[in-house]
């Protein structure tokens, strides 16, 4: 499963970069995230309540930031264990590009995610995997873009 997308954020790149490295921001933007705690350098643990239709479960997620090139790009890796439901693993490579906007510097965020799911989720729910992943990624980056207005 692979998805890509982009969003344009009316903020300078280093501000966007700081936000991308702020666990509070990440937690706010991740759908269903109940908690996110730093457990090491670029490593976090999160509790995420995921809901896809009638399927509803709370997952423990391990998140780590890799291949960090400040302030341009990193790869965010997520590993989720969902007990009876199975597991999910994914990574999002995020790139930030400086672009000129009408009111000063803006940032073009592009992302490419890929991942896979295992166990019962994969066995029963394969038809929904792509759509669900697309939704989660799109929602995350949409919220991320909006977050600057409210933060």
């Amino acid at each position: 499963m692979e998805q890509a997308g982009e969003s344009r954020i009316a903020q300078p790149r280093d501000r966007v970069w700081r936000a991308l490295n702020d666990p509070e921001v990440l937690a706010r933007c991740l759908d269903g995230c109940k908690s996110m705690t730093a457990v090491g350098d670029g490593e976090y643990e999160a509790e995420v309540g995921a809901k896809v239709g009638p399927v509803k479960a709370t997952f423990k997620a391990a998140i780590s930031l890799n291949d960090v090139i400040e302030p341009e790009s990193y790869r965010l890796e997520v590993e989720v264990k969902g007990g009876a439901a199975g597991f999910a693993k994914g990574s999002a490579t995020v790139n930030l590009e400086e672009v000129a906007g009408d009111d000063g510097d803006e940032t073009l965020l592009t992302y490419r995610i890929n991942g896979n799911i295992g166990g019962k989720l994969a066995q029963i729910g394969s038809r929904l995997v792509d759509a669900a992943a697309r939704k989660m990624a799109a929602r995350f980056f949409a919220r991320f873009a909006v977050d600057f207005d409210t933060a």
Partner: peptide, 21 residues
């Protein structure tokens, strides 16, 4: 809580233990 109407999706989901209302 969760509402149950016909149960055609909810009950199979509960049987698979993919939800725990």
């Amino acid at each position: 809580g969760v509402y149950l109407s016909g149960g055609m999706t909810l009950i199979p989901t509960l049987k698979q233990r993919l939800a725990s209302p």
